[in-house]
Every structure is written in structure tokens, then in C-alpha cells.
Amino acid sequence: MKRGKGLSSRLNNEIEIVRKVETDTGTGGSTESWQVLAKVPAEVICLSGREVLTEKVLQGIRVYRITIRHRTDVSEECQVRYGDEDLNIRAALDPKGQREETVILADTDGALPTR
């Protein structure tokens, strides 16, 4: 039986998974900030790119498929930092159901700055 490349050999990029957290200011208020949940090796593949006109501004949008080792704490509430880009997570799933990898579909459309 022919075998493809193992997962470890494909994870040649690094991403950060970040989640928004609310912090008490100590004066009765709170602030929101992004906290790094994990820095992980990843396979990052750009699936498509397009330009859209949003509020009279031309904006480039890219869609990525990101593969990482299996995690259960990645959700649509998180974002991904990849290089200088902030990406919205649209889906995070275990495609084979074997708890080996998590595949993340993410894009730059409306991603909030996390830095």
C-alpha cells in the first residue's frame, strides 16, 4: 500500500490561535483583548482569493485551509494569526474522526485586528 506524506512532514508553517477575553479593569469596567491560546505548527494552503468592494474600499479576501494536530479547543470564536494576517475561523473539524488532525477553514473577510 502506498502511503502519502505524514502529518508531521506537512506542518511547515507556524500559526497562533487566539481567543478574545474580557478583563476586569478594576474600576467597574472591562476591556476586551486577544489572548494567545496556542502557537502550533500548521500546513497552510490558500484556497482562493478575490477582491470585493466594501464601503467604497477595494478589499482583498483570501480563504485558507489550515491543518494542525488535533485540538478540541478551536472554534469559530477564535481567530488565527498567520504571519501578518488575522483570519476568521469559519469551521474547525476532525475530517476523519480519528483525533489525528484538525482542519480549519479561515478567511480574511472582516477579521478583527488581534495585535
Rank of each mutant, 00 (worst) to 15 (best):
A92W: 12
L87G: 03
A92H: 01
D84F: 13
R69I: 02
V52N: 01
R65P: 01
E101L: 03
P95C: 06
G29S: 13
V103I: 11
V57A: 01
V74A: 04
R81E: 02
G49Q: 10
K56P: 04
E101D: 05
R69N: 15
I104F: 12
R81M: 10
V40P: 04
R3E: 08
Q35L: 07
L37E: 06
W34F: 09
T54N: 09
I68T: 14
V80T: 12
T72R: 13
V63S: 04
R19I: 11
I68A: 02
G49S: 05
L7T: 11
K2N: 03
N12Q: 14
T67F: 03
Q98F: 09
T54L: 13
V63F: 06
S9H: 10
A92M: 01
R99L: 13
V18T: 07
K2V: 13
E85P: 04
A42F: 03
K96M: 07
N12P: 00
G49W: 00
N13T: 04
K2S: 09
I68C: 02
L112W: 06
G110L: 13
V63T: 13
A106V: 12
T31V: 09
R115I: 13
R99P: 00
Y64C: 04
R50L: 01
R62V: 03
K2I: 15
K20Y: 10
R69G: 05
D84G: 11
L105D: 12
I61V: 14
G110E: 14
I89N: 05
L47P: 01
G60S: 13
S8N: 05
Q35Y: 11
E22N: 12
S30N: 14
C78H: 02
G26A: 05
L37R: 07
L112R: 09
K5H: 09
K96N: 14
L7V: 15
D84T: 13
L11W: 06
D73G: 03
R62Q: 08
E32M: 10
I66V: 15
Y82A: 00
P41T: 09
